[in-house]
């Protein structure tokens, strides 16, 4: 690859720079994510009548990872496209591709890994030493039970949307991004409502009432020949929303970075 497009050494330097530049988050993250299992342990120990079991701890970690991964572009790269504050980043002697990849790595890999490692590490440590009051390991649970393709693709969609709008909007980006999300939800719900009512009028009420669809059971790309038309529409919409839209947002973010004027 062209030296001006991608150079491993420069890419490595950029990763190191990125990790160094977010060091202010390290201590905070360590305190918060290691402190939470400790807090749960103390609650279990206090005999207050509440027990925070393995399932609750896992659900908590799941929610934490999901929410922080989704908002990570705002947390880590909020000023990237600011006409004044973002100049250090844009003028840094690395290619747009390298900067973009570091951004994706930080949001998609480093953030969830850091949270799971710190939270899970402390959780395992407590479970190892105090198995009577604190049983099971959340890391094991997360790996074996909690992660599924539907959840991962949904997180990816939301995160890529936030990354894109974080780069697209310069001022009041949180409000504008929220506005776009609300608008998208309204349009989606309206479209689903209209589609459902169209099918309801065309099908027998019995067929429609017994219609059932489980996202987790049905694979993302699975469509059967005898599927109800509404299932086919749902599956096509899922593929569009969870595969095509995130890919388009990824490409869009790169394009915005490449052509941004300051």
């Amino acid at each position: 690859m062209n030296n001006n497009t991608f150079q491993p050494d420069r890419f490595y330097r950029l990763i190191v720079r990125n990790l160094k530049s977010i060091r202010k988050y390290w201590v905070q993250s360590l305190l918060i994510f290691a402190g939470l299992p400790l807090l749960f342990f103390l609650i279990n120990l206090s005999n207050m009548g509440i027990e925070i079991d393995l399932h609750s701890r896992t659900s908590f970690l799941n929610g934490l990872v999901t929410s922080l991964v989704v908002v990570s572009p705002f947390m880590l790269f909020f000023n990237y496209n600011h006409p004044k504050k973002g100049l250090t980043e844009v003028m840094l002697a690395a290619s747009v591709l390298e900067k973009y990849l570091v951004m994706q790595l930080a949001c998609l890999l480093f953030t969830p890994l850091a949270i799971v490692a710190i939270y899970g590490g402390m959780d395992s440590l407590l479970a190892f030493f105090f198995s009577n009051t604190y049983s099971g390991h959340v890391i094991q649970q997360i790996i074996h039970n909690s992660l599924n393709l539907h959840q991962i693709t949904t997180i990816l969609l939301l995160q890529q949307a936030i990354l894109f709008f974080n780069l697209l909007f310069v001022r009041r980006k949180v409000v504008k991004t929220g506005g776009v999300f609300i608008l998208t939800m309204i349009v989606t719900i309206a479209a689903i409502g209209i589609t459902a009512s169209l099918f309801e009028s065309g099908s027998s009420s019995d067929e429609f009432n017994h219609f059932n669809f489980d996202f987790n059971e049905r694979g993302l790309f699975t469509i059967y020949a005898d599927d109800h038309p509404i299932v086919i529409i749902i599956q096509i919409t899922r593929i569009f929303m969870l595969v095509i839209v995130p890919l388009a947002l990824m490409a869009g973010s790169y394009f915005v970075m490449k052509n941004k004027r300051y």
Partner: peptide, 16 residues
């Protein structure tokens, strides 16, 4: 990168 490593722009406002 080859261009950016050869120039430096110092803006009036140093918010960057």
């Amino acid at each position: 990168p080859s261009f950016l490593s050869r120039i430096y722009y110092l803006p009036e406002e140093i918010d960057y």
